[in-house]
Design a protein around this nucleic acid. Structure first.
Length: 671
DNA sequence: CGGTCTATAATTTTT
DNA sequence: TTATAGACCG
């Protein structure tokens, strides 16, 4: 590719882009142009003669992958960009597994279980396994199993098999295998196993990718590291980008040590630090630097900016959470007018989702448009899951969880008693429920009516399975026909309380069917591929329709805010117990809470206000709060600390003339 | 069988 | 306060 130019890169960015051979660690602080460096580097690789199809860029989220693809498209053009593999860890693992999981005793048409499916299965196993006096929180079990798997364990540790948790773990794994299903953790676990244990598979993939790039490396867990190590061949062309100071997913299994001890995983890497920040004022950056400097075990970094100091970071004490919400809403409303700002320029950050409620009320009362990021997944919707379950069930009839979900939806005479006995039979015969339903020995026990219902259901599924698997089958049409034949939409409407709800659910189903048709036009993997994509894209409600983007004030948790930036940020609830959260002290993860605040602070471009309350309503009743200990770690010279009362007494005109005078007064007030 | 009542617990959530 | 899960009753 002739004429590719590296423009507007600072010396460190330039080094990161030009270092193409051997391990490379890019420590990219917040707002240092990370994505730009990654895409530029891909462009540079290609300009140096690397075949784009030999490049693999891995991200955590679909959103990041999409963004990178778009940026790359603008940089190197459609043809080359399309050949670069840009994928999430999980999607990559699906690709690896679809073409080789049979070596591990699964069938290549395996189903993918999301957390809901996983939970259902675990609950079932617990009730089946636990003795009468034993209890196990399914949620806890799920987390423990997930943690174990993310540490590379496919079964309970020796000695653990006797405990209920160990037994459940073992049974869960075994059951998944008979169901020919894998959960999200398995995708990584099994892909790593496949690569580690099967030389020929490993070589195949190593031959495929010569240059690896991993984004958000601080969030990788043990398995993801192992995956990268397996994919890297002897050339070890592994470039990772990340920031240990922004590692906030330790509780989900992320290993900060992956990035802290990069040198021990990939020998003699080039290490590049990106410290020039293009996002924030120096007041904000100094505040962030000082805070994070209190963390032990980090790669020292110090963000700086060519911007000026900017306004001081405000720290405002509130009487209570009501006042806090009122203040933020009022001020945003005022600033939107007086500072000629857009609603989109403001973001309100908090530790817990519960904190957003009061804010929402206040914003609504003032008719301020806002959007709440996070919340429930689109895929948690009943009708969406039902449709996916129908599809999954027909593609992999052994998928009990999906089968049980739709076996009597809509009602077709397959009531709980039949289902119960089918499950019982399947447990005894150690087969899937589907096999049980087909087994004459099982059917023989049933009364005539039930027998007929089972036979009809079996015929239905069987028929569609055959139709779908025919070569050149018009799969979208077949899926549509299935939905039609079972009368799903009618049943859905009937089960809804209001017509509006029914309509919205119906629309969701139709949208999915349309999405499948669209998928068929751009991909060749058929319903299986579509399902994979759906399962791995557990996107949230608000991400679904693009037009909802960019409208209004953003309400978001600190976790979800990583990677985003806003001109004006309000960071709420800087209180001991909230941030750092009480639980973090118990679990000894206060460092991570500090990083969380660090992430929050570094989201702000121009102004940042942090608030804390003397009282906050917790679980219905007001509780006294004390200011977060983190606040003492911030540099006083960058702060403008006051109580709300003091703020109100400041004339509006003076407020915009912040500077020396304010600083002096703040100093005096501190005493 | 399905709806309603009551006890219980209470971060964060990329796939 | 509120969400949710399991118990309980019509």
């Amino acid at each position: 590719m002739a004429g590719f130019r590296l423009f507007d890169l600072n010396p460190e960015q330039d080094l990161a882009v030009r270092t193409i051979n051997g391990p490379l660690l890019i420590l990219a602080g917040a707002g240092t142009g990370k994505t730009r460096v990654i895409t530029m580097r891909v462009g540079y690789l290609i300009s140096e003669g690397v075949d784009p199809s030999n490049i693999l860029a891995v991200t955590f989220t679909n959103k990041a992958a999409t963004e990178m693809r778009e940026r790359l498209l603008g940089l190197i053009g459609k043809d080359a960009a399309k050949k670069v593999t840009m994928s999430t860890f999980h999607a990559l693992c699906v690709r690896i597994l679809r073409s080789g999981i049979d070596r591990l005793g699964y069938k290549n048409n395996f189903s993918i279980y999301d957390e809901g499916d996983q939970m259902g299965l675990i609950k079932k196993i617990i009730t089946r396994t636990a003795a009468r006096d034993e209890k196990l929180d399914p949620n806890l079990a799920k987390n423990m199993i997930s943690k174990a798997k993310n540490n590379g364990h496919r079964q309970p540790e020796p000695g653990q098999e006797q405990s209920l948790l160990g037994a459940v773990f073992a049974k869960y794994q075994a059951e998944l295998k008979t169901l020919n299903a894998v959960d999200f953790d398995d995708l990584l676990l099994l892909a790593v196993q496949l690569l580690e244990e099967h030389e020929e598979v490993r070589q195949l993939w190593q031959k495929r990718f010569h240059y690896l790039m991993v984004d958000e490396f601080q969030d990788t867990n043990l398995l993801q590291l192992r995956l990268v190590m397996q994919l890297a061949d002897a050339r070890n062309n592994v470039a990772v980008v990340g920031d240990d100071d922004q590692s906030i997913y330790g509780w989900r299994g992320a290993e900060v040590t992956n990035i802290l001890e990069f040198e021990s995983h990939f020998a003699n890497p080039t290490v590049v630090k990106l410290e020039q920040n293009y996002r924030s004022t120096n007041s904000i950056l100094k505040t962030a630097n000082k805070l994070i400097g209190n963390n032990p075990r980090r790669r020292p970094k110090s963000l700086w900016s060519a911007h000026n100091e900017g306004e001081k970071v405000r720290v405002i004490a509130m009487k209570d959470d009501r006042q806090e919400a009122e203040f933020v809403a009022e001020e945003i409303q005022r600033r939107q007018v007086t500072e000629d700002a857009k609603w989109e320029d403001f973001a309100i950050l908090f530790r817990m989702n519960a904190q957003s409620r009061l804010i929402e009320q206040n914003l609504r009362a003032r008719k301020i448009p806002y959007r709440v990021i996070g919340g429930k997944s689109f895929f948690d919707r009943r009708e969406v899951k039902d449709l996916l379950a129908y599809a999954s069930c027909v593609l992999n009839t052994d998928d009990d969880v999906s089968l049980l979900r739709i076996v009597n939806t809509p009602a077709r005479g397959m009531g709980p008693s039949i289902v119960e006995s089918a499950i019982e039979f399947s447990t005894k015969a150690r087969c899937s429920v589907w096999k049980a339903l087909q087994d004459e020995a099982f059917r023989a026990e049933l009364p005539t009516r039930s027998y007929k219902a089972v036979a009809a259901f079996a015929e239905l599924v069987d028929g569609y399975e055959t139709r779908l698997n025919q070569p050149l089958a018009d799969q979208p049409a077949i899926l549509r026909a299935l939905v039609e034949e079972v009368g799903y939409l009618e049943d859905l409407r009937r089960s809804c309380k209001t017509p509006e709800e029914g309509l919205s659910r119906e629309t969701n189903v139709k949208d999915m069917l349309t999405a499948f048709e669209d998928y068929g036009k751009r991909a060749s993997e058929g319903l299986r591929g579509f399902l994979d994509e759906m399962m791995l894209r557990q996107e949230k409600e608000e991400e679904k329709d693009e037009d909802s983007k960019g409208t209004g004030v953003t309400l978001i948790t600190l976790h979800a805010a990583k990677g985003l930036e806003f001109p004006h940020v309000y960071l709420l609830g800087l209180e001991e117990g909230l941030l750092p959260h009480d639980r973090s002290k118990l679990e000894g993860t206060v460092d991570e809470e500090r990083r969380l605040l660090y992430v929050g602070i570094t989201r702000a471009m121009r102004t940042l206000a942090m608030t804390w309350c003397q009282h906050r309503i917790k679980f219905g009743s007001p509780a006294p709060c004390i200011v977060s200990s983190f606040l003492k770690e911030l540099p006083p010279e960058c702060l403008d600390q006051r109580s709300l009362g003091q703020l109100m007494n400041t004339p509006v005109a003076q407020e915009s003339v912040k500077g020396r005078f304010d600083a002096m007064r703040a100093l005096l007030e501190q005493k």
